[in-house]
């Protein structure tokens, strides 16, 4: 068994003609929390969807747990996905089911377990995210942070070896944000899973992850451990870590010269 759960080499991906990822190299060690950071529209979600098998690479190598994702049929993909959990940005809880049934969903679909055992497992998972008491609420009765924690409980229901998080911190208040961050770290350590976290919350990431990749304009612009990045003098990383307005990532969207557009030059 190789040390790396995820191996990506020279991965490119295009939506129709538009090349979004151009030669990504990335690997994630087992048991680590790896962050994928970068500006919006940089291709982070696309990368996550490729790892989850929702998209197929245009070229390059993408290995997850030793399985080559580019030549996988549907059954193979579904088998692999039982070992993956994914946390969607807003939780994506099933709105017509209670919290309990949401967490029980993957168990009922995939494991032929007696109802009492499902009950025990569900309460265990909910307890792990601190929401055992909320098991008979409906998703509409949950706050954003709680919904994401329930979704996390659902994602770990089948005890996956890989959990993918798409922007788990977006739109959370500072307290929920800290809670979610700690939870990701703790679950990764106690369950022995590998976590890939797509985010643009730099401070929270630097606090809890093991390794960071910066995706910018379809390539890995920088990478390193949190300590290396904090110390980095590279302008792009510096701008990102310190949240400066202008730098290698410009404030202005590419446009004709201002004066031209206002027809001042005529």
């Amino acid at each position: 068994m190789s040390d790396n759960l995820i191996e990506i080499r020279d991965l490119s991906f295009a939506y129709r003609e538009r090349l979004v990822l151009k030669g990504i190299n990335l690997s994630a060690r087992r048991g680590q929390v790896v962050a994928i950071m970068g500006i919006s529209g940089g291709g982070k979600t696309t990368l996550l969807r490729l790892i989850g098998g929702a998209l197929r690479p245009t070229s390059g190598v993408l290995n997850v747990d030793g399985v080559d994702m580019s030549h996988l049929d549907r059954d193979g993909l579904y088998r692999l996905r039982r070992r993956m959990g994914m946390l969607f940005q807003f939780g994506a809880l099933f709105t017509d089911m209670s919290v309990f049934d949401n967490v029980a969903f993957p168990l009922r679909e995939h494991a032929d377990l007696p109802e009492e055992m499902i009950r025990d497992l569900v309460l265990m998972k909910l307890n792990a995210v601190g929401l055992r008491g909320a098991h008979d609420l409906m998703p509409s009765e949950l706050s954003g942070g709680m919904a994401r924690r329930v979704a996390l409980a659902r994602a770990i229901a089948l005890e996956p070896s890989l959990i993918l998080y798409d922007e788990p911190f977006a739109g959370l208040d500072p307290i929920s944000l800290g809670v979610t961050g700690n939870l990701i770290r703790r679950l990764t350590d106690t369950l022995g899973v590998t976590s890939i976290v797509v985010t643009h919350d730099i401070q929270e990431s630097l606090r809890m992850v093991d390794y960071v990749y910066f995706v910018s304009e379809g390539v890995i612009a920088a990478q390193g451990t949190p300590d290396e990045l904090r110390a980095s003098t590279e302008p792009f990383v510096h701008q990102f870590v310190h949240g400066e307005e202008d730098g290698p990532v410009p404030f202005h969207y590419p446009a004709p010269a201002y004066a031209d557009e206002l027809e001042l030059a005529a």
Partner: peptide, 10 residues
């Protein structure tokens, strides 16, 4: 994304 979530749960 409930359908996508379902798909991700195989």
């Amino acid at each position: 994304e409930q359908l996508a979530a379902m798909e991700m749960m195989a």
